[in-house]
């Protein structure tokens, strides 16, 4: 055998299967054999053709990871929905109320996840679901707010999200929310960090491509909170934003900051039409 070592190594590397085919798949997401999810949809008009089709991050995962979301018992995120249910019924704070005192069964939250973040007339600002939960805790229950990206917040968000599972994300971007949305859009396209990457560089221009061994998705947030195999817990949207911005080697905005609230509204609006999936399962 006369061929040189480099060629030999290259030949072995290129013979490794599975690293080339990186397109998102065409599988259908049906949960428990019952809930049919819309994981691909026409892009909303306000995207102005930036994406030909909007797609859930589920399509970018391996068959093994996808399967974990197709059955509520295989989905480890559901155990935190149970945890959220316990929180829901726990009386806390000076008013001696639980969530259940006013809202009764969590099924009363159906549709809520699909419409947040949204403009709050009384507060005069766009509020995320996390802000609304803490608003309720502080002002109606007289209880301590949850940490913005804490486990308890993620549990409560998961409990509320699961009530809307299968409903299309439908956040409003008109009226008083417009200004916040525009700010979020600007952030989405602004390069940050030493790597000078914007959200769009990876999730609009390169979804479907591999970033080393990772399959880039569109960065949709319809599946949040999401149970990640990486850290084996529920992850909130702002914790994920922070991780992403950090990886551009930038000083990140804080979870709950005006910047991340605006970004959440904008990113959520890019998924208008996809089903609420939370709690989803990702890598």
């Amino acid at each position: 055998m006369k061929f040189n070592a480099m060629t030999a190594i290259a030949a072995v590397l290129f013979s490794v299967p599975g690293l080339v085919a990186a397109d998102p798949d065409d599988d259908n997401l049906v949960i428990n054999g019952e809930i049919e999810m819309t994981t691909k949809a026409e892009p909303p008009a306000h995207l102005d053709g930036a994406l030909p089709e909007i797609m859930s991050g589920w399509h970018f995962r391996s068959d093994e990871t996808q399967a974990l979301q197709m059955d509520d018992f295989d989905n480890s995120g559901m155990i935190f929905v149970d945890e959220g249910m316990a929180q829901w019924n726990t009386v806390e704070g000076s008013e001696e109320k639980s969530c259940a005192t006013c809202h009764e069964d969590p099924s009363s939250m159906k549709g809520v996840r699909a419409s947040y973040p949204k403009w709050d007339e009384d507060a005069g600002e766009v509020q995320t679901l996390a802000m609304q939960i803490n608003d309720c805790r502080e002002n109606n229950m007289g209880a301590e707010p949850y940490g913005y990206t804490s486990g308890k917040m993620a549990n409560m968000e998961a409990l509320i999200a699961v009530q809307s599972r299968g409903m299309p994300v439908d956040v409003a971007i008109d009226g008083p929310a417009r200004e916040t949305w525009e700010k979020g859009k600007e952030l989405y396209y602004t390069r940050t960090g030493q790597l000078e990457l914007s959200c769009a560089n990876c999730h609009e221009q390169n979804y479907g491509n591999m970033i080393r061994a990772d399959h880039l998705s569109q960065g949709q947030i319809n599946g949040f909170p999401t149970y990640r195999l990486k850290n084996a817990k529920l992850n909130t949207v702002h914790a994920r934003f922070k991780g992403c911005v950090r990886d551009t080697r930038a000083e990140t905005f804080k979870p709950g900051s005006d910047e991340f609230v605006a970004l959440e509204l904008y990113v959520a609006s890019r998924g208008n039409g996809l089903s609420v999936e939370g709690p989803s399962v990702r890598n």
Partner: peptide
């Protein structure tokens, strides 16, 4: 076992 792209 794959190593993530940016690990975020």
């Amino acid at each position: 076992v794959t190593i993530g792209g940016c690990g975020g």
